[in-house]
Write a protein that binds this DNA or RNA. Structure first.
Lengths: 339, 339
DNA sequence: TTGAAAGCGCTAACAT
DNA sequence: ATGTTAGCGCTTTCAA
């Protein structure tokens, strides 16, 4: 049974044509100093023998896999799925491929991801950190191996590498100013307990906007919890028990905002009666009722910039690139804040 | 400059301990006939020298990469993101990893994907076909190489391999029967022009349910177009121009259903006035207004079954496994059909 | 323009 | 329990 034919290698092609493997290798890889006849013969024979190159062998020898490892917290968030999409699109034609790793918002899993990708000999890594990531030592090996490392969206100051981020301060400021412009005066804020920059920057923007508009900052209005539909409901529950109830709510992501809206509808405070705005412009945000105002984070632009940075770094390995690309957030005005 | 230290290999460890690489290799891979002292020394030295195995070399030698290639049409659909998630979860602890490839619903891209994955020497492939895929010759090489190939959701009859699918006939039947039970009598159907089984099976289910309930089948009611929000709006537009307007609409996926709902709202026929039901239970379906009735396709169960099949096939390569796992669809009754 | 040969890092049969 | 050695399939230097 079985008798599984061995796969065709360049040796088979060489033997078939009475030439050596080096010639075959050159012909196949577009080496210039090869006669046209030889090249044609090789290509024709390769096709005839159904040859498929073993990239493993080639990578082992050349030290380049042409694979980029990308680590994201989760594919379930449309935002990250979009970034991946634009990274792949941007890489088209460059010869580089992506291999994905989901950390599932877990630090341990992220550490494992870096290890796995490094063992797979990726040529570089792009990563967006998990919510749990407070320490980034696991990335130092990437830098030590002199492989391009690029951080996007969820970054860490301790890592001196190129980054692509949103202007999160501005995002928070814009959301807050928008609510104020709509006439809301007592604005609450639902965010995560995790100390990661994008969220604390947004919060800073919120505080700055309040101050710039001479509105008091009420610490009770800031709820530190999780980010999810459930947490949104829970947060609203907490806020509604306050003596001085807020008239608008900023949620640190759209899922939390969605939960907030659902709860508000139940207690008959349907937005924009109480205003709600989120972050990320998730897939559902334009379709719920009321439609959800939010801050678009331009994932496609982020992906494109990551690719640009990566290709630059590959081209000039020596240049210690630590540029930070900052993407401008956009306000999406929808029904949930239109008072 | 640079002076980039070369990476530690098992040779470095061997030299350090005055033993040979084979001993090191054995110690590291858990080979039994190794003295405890040696093993300890090797492990300790490996850690000290910051050794990281080169899986490429190991894979080249052993012929096994322990990587599975997974091809999906798109990560933007929550359904596929969920399947990926459960595949990764199911693989945990098995030593296998996933590398992802998005076909973006393009046949050419899918062909390329198979080629790329094969060149990367994956140990097997799991795939869900693109809408354009009417010919599956590009998978024959996978079979020829005797590598496990598993199809899920979007399958093809010409491929005699294990499959994990939804009972799509039943899904279509259930959706239709549900509408009939709710009192709808003239049910339209928005689907894709692409001839792929899941959609034609659903349509068959629809026709069967009509017949079983002695309702006439009106061919005008079946619109063949694309699947997207835009197509949903467009489909409704077409239907509303019919002499005998339908009182309910089945859309072949939730995105199309969403488009239909948006259009219906604009023309003041808000569901459930005209009933709407979709397929896939996408992330937004429970949150739009009205909430969208749909058929849940149990992506997590699908992923789990794919993993089971794969591990079975790896265990027993000789057994020609062609079992088809059929997942039962579940009706999600929501507001859009509650008359 | 082509060939010969070394070697990327690892595994595993065969020896001892 | 450990050592020796021959590759896995490919690239690339050096030589012709």
């Amino acid at each position: 049974m079985s008798g599984q034919k061995k796969k065709t290698t360049i040796y088979d092609i060489a033997k078939e044509l009475n030439i050596t493997v080096s010639t075959v290798s050159r012909a196949l890889s577009g080496f210039p100093a090869i006669s046209d006849t030889t090249r044609q013969a090789v290509i024709e024979t390769a096709k005839r023998l159904n040859y498929s190159p073993n990239k493993l062998a080639s990578a082992l020898k050349s030290g380049q896999t042409h694979i980029i490892g990308v680590i994201v917290p989760s594919l379930q968030a449309h935002f990250f799925a979009s970034i991946i999409h634009s990274i792949e699109k941007g890489l088209k034609g460059s010869g580089y491929r992506v291999i994905l790793y989901q950390s599932n918002e877990s630090l341990i899993s992220e550490i494992n991801g870096v290890k796995t990708l490094l063992e797979a000999q990726v040529d570089g890594i792009m990563a967006s950190l998990s919510l749990e990531t407070d320490n980034v030592d696991h990335f130092s090996e990437v830098i030590k191996q002199n492989k391009p490392l690029i951080l996007f969206d969820r970054v860490h100051e301790k890592l001196d590498v190129p980054k692509v981020i949103l202007d999160d301060f501005k995002a928070g400021y814009t959301a807050t100013q928008h609510l104020i412009d709509q006439g809301y005066k007592n604005i609450a804020y639902l965010t995560t307990i995790h100390q990661i920059p994008i969220f604390s920057e947004r919060l800073k923007g919120y505080k700055a906007a309040l101050a710039d508009n001479d509105l008091p900052l009420n610490e009770e209005n800031i709820i530190f919890g999780g980010l999810s539909i459930k947490d949104g409901r829970f947060g609203v529950g907490k806020l509604m028990r306050l003596e001085h109830k807020p008239d608008a709510i900023i949620a640190a992501d759209d899922f939390t905002a969605l939960g907030a809206i659902k709860k508000l509808k139940e207690i008959d405070q349907v937005p924009p009666k109480i205003g709600v705005i989120g972050f990320a412009n998730e897939a559902f945000s334009a379709y719920i009722t009321p439609t959800l105002s939010t801050i678009d984070q331009h994932p496609n632009q982020m992906g494109t910039e990551c690719v640009k940075l990566f290709l630059d770094m590959i081209k000039d390995k020596s240049a210690h690139n630590t540029s930070t690309v900052i993407i401008e957030p956009s306000l999406m005005e929808r029904q949930s804040t239109l008072s």
